[in-house]
Computed example of a mutant assay.
Amino acid sequence: MTINAIIVDDEEYSRKSLYFLLEVHCPNVKIKGIAKSVSEAKGMLLAGNIDLVFLDIAMPIEDGFYLLPDIQKVNSSVIFTTAYDQYGLKALKANAIDYILKPIDIEELKQAVEKAIYLRKLTLNNLRGSESRNTKLQNLEENLNDLKKINKINLPNSNGFQILNVNQIVYVSADSNYSIFYLDNKESIIVSRHLKEYQELLEKSGFSRIHKSTIINLKHLSDYTNKNGLIVKLSDNSEHVVSRRRSSEFLDTVRHYFKR
């Protein structure tokens, strides 16, 4: 199945880079236009027959969210592409197919396009009446749950930001208004944001908050014991207390995680 798409981004390099990646790695996507702004993209949408929009968020005058009503009018789908991870939750709430951080990872792009094609087929089948409403809702719910998982996260610093694969993170601890990320290479990164923000971002990606001041990556969990209190040990040999208030939820999360 071939789908028609447009690229909307104010940066020339980003437009050209994404176009090249799609041409080489996603032959099922036919680029029908490239826009530098929301107003330019509106004209392309009105021209018709656009199935998918690759949409940057942080653009001057009007950000990408201003284009959403026009995208919805023509029943197109959205894949957000941006360098700013703080837009992630808002993007997901806007029912985007996916949300990709720049610089764009080829595998993430291919997966996002596969989702777009799948949902396009789902929509067409539904219009033909070949799929029940309950099945459609179930598939859509599973897809949206999957979108809440993130593979990368960017951590702001005084010079810009640093992009991490979430698998690099062993645990995150709170220190007043700061969050400290401890990585599998023994490095640590301090970010001036509350731990709760990162809990919301990471909880669908295999992380569990075990204490008011600690989030752990279950991928790095190596041991758990209640012999002398509730204690977990991680791959870096660090040990952490699981609060009694969170112990039941933690155990349920662990069981579900290792059943996958």
Rank of each mutant, 00 (worst) to 15 (best):
I169S: 03
Y182K: 05
Q199S: 12
L124Y: 13
K30L: 09
Y178C: 01
L234D: 06
H240C: 01
D175G: 00
I169T: 05
A94Y: 08
E131A: 03
H240N: 05
S213V: 01
P69L: 06
I210C: 02
N134A: 13
L92Q: 05
I163K: 15
I189D: 01
S179R: 04
H211P: 09
K30Y: 02
L122K: 10
D63L: 08
F161R: 08
L234R: 02
A91K: 05
I79N: 07
K93A: 14
I216R: 06
S243R: 06
R128C: 10
F20G: 00
L155W: 09
I97V: 14
S243K: 05
L230T: 05
L124H: 13
Y66M: 12
D236C: 06
G229V: 01
P103L: 08
S208L: 05
S76F: 11
E23T: 12
L89W: 07
S14R: 01
K102V: 09
Y178M: 02
L202F: 12
A35E: 08
N75F: 11
E23P: 00
L18A: 07
H25C: 00
I180D: 00
K227V: 12
I215W: 07
N28D: 14
R245K: 13
D184G: 04
V24E: 14
I7T: 05
R246H: 10
I34N: 00
N217S: 12
T135Q: 15
D252S: 13
T253N: 13
E23Y: 04
L55G: 05
L221R: 07
E131C: 09
I153E: 02
G88Y: 10
S132P: 01
N237D: 15
K149R: 15
T81H: 10
A174L: 03
P27S: 07
G64S: 08
E142M: 11
Q72M: 01
L164F: 15
R260G: 00
K102Y: 10
L137T: 11
A116Q: 07
A35V: 06
